[in-house]
Design a binder for these strands. Structure first.
Lengths: 211, 211
DNA sequence: GTCTATAGGTAGATAGAC
DNA sequence: GTCTATCTACCTATAGAC
């Protein structure tokens, strides 16, 4: 088990799990390296700093998800003359769930990391994401705009940010929420179930008429 | 009314601003006491520990907001036989905006603190909030449940947490969002305007039929 | 109540042997 | 590339003078 993967990968695997569970600032390099069973100094040798390790963890997912997501949206576009909002949001579910092949629990890990990334770290990660994956993000915004042409661009801007907040906060607290739902409502949910619950919510919110 | 130059109040004022901006774990007692221009040791003298300071910061807002919110909901209830979701959410706007009298930017600060409290600190603050203000929360949940009786309780649970995420994230990024809206769409918004935009969004999401 | 001084711990990062 | 050992910085918390 010890040398099953190279050190760099072992660090990434341990770090993403701990970052997703506990957040970035609550996860020390000592904790990461002890879980990964590698030496403390190897993080700085392979990644330079903790900040760059965080970016590397996110990039490993974004590099897979972002192209897959914009491709799924473009495929959707060719099938339907006018895709509904639910169809657009739903077309992201495939690329999201495919992340489970990258890593066990990959979907949940990725979304939690994304949430932490937007909330923690004074916007550094926000900038990293929009600057490195801006083209894919635009594909998405354009598809949404076309699907609800009656909504003014300014309202779409606001509502997509409301949506980002919904998803990001939900994913950051997903573990706690699933636990409460299990205790209070005897519901056994996984991350796919939570995604299925949130899609009607955000679709209705973005499409609602009137101020 | 507490003395503005009282050490305890100075600590609370500095702490809430920094906690809201940077998060709890990213804010050291040294930073708080230097901004408050008080001695480092005074935090432990007045509050015992950092953890209790965090609770005190939140409590100062919750003690004002929670009773005002549940009273507003009960007043609403007497006026309307069956309040709509938009009416229920709108009845919270008054109590929320009144927090600006407590402190400049009180509304935004409170909502940011609430978001941090739910995401950081491994559920300690979540427990604190639900155990100390559970009765007021129940008033709210009950009003929502009655206004959409066709929605199962478990779905209401999920959708109210989606809503919490929407509001909290939006408030956390409110400055950046209002700036972008001004530049890109020539819109001049304040916090009250953002709240008016978010109410239709969350109302539609909570009320949407179907899974 | 407020201060100085410091204890006692943990963080990220690095030098240098191997 | 990997290790040990260590540096520097910062953290929360407290003891004790005033």
């Amino acid at each position: 088990m010890a040398n099953r993967f190279d050190t760099k990968t072992r660090i990434l695997d341990a770090a993403e799990r701990l970052f997703a569970e506990r957040g970035f600032s609550e996860t020390s390099l000592r904790l990461i390296t002890s879980k990964a069973e590698v030496n403390l100094a190897s993080v700085n040798y392979h990644f330079g700093s903790k900040k760059e390790l965080i970016r590397a963890v996110l990039a490993r997912y974004l590099d897979v998800f972002m192209p897959a997501a914009s491709q799924a949206i473009n495929t959707q576009r060719k099938l339907e003359q006018q895709a509904t909002l639910e169809q657009i949001f739903s077309s992201l579910v495939g690329p999201l769930l495919k992340l489970n092949q990258l890593c066990p629990d990959g979907t949940r890990t990725f979304l939690q990391l994304l949430g932490r990334g937007y909330i923690e770290s004074q916007g550094h990660l926000r900038w990293f994401i929009t600057s490195h994956y801006g083209e894919h993000l635009q594909t998405f915004v354009r598809a949404v705009t076309e699907s609800v042409p009656e909504i003014p661009a300014a309202d779409i801007f606001w509502r997509l940010h409301f949506t980002l907040g919904t998803v990001v906060f939900t994913m950051a607290s997903a573990d706690a929420l699933m636990e409460i739902a299990a205790a209070d409502f005897a519901e056994q949910n996984d991350i796919a179930a939570v995604i299925r619950k949130v899609i009607p919510y955000i679709s209705a919110g973005v499409a609602v008429s009137g101020k």
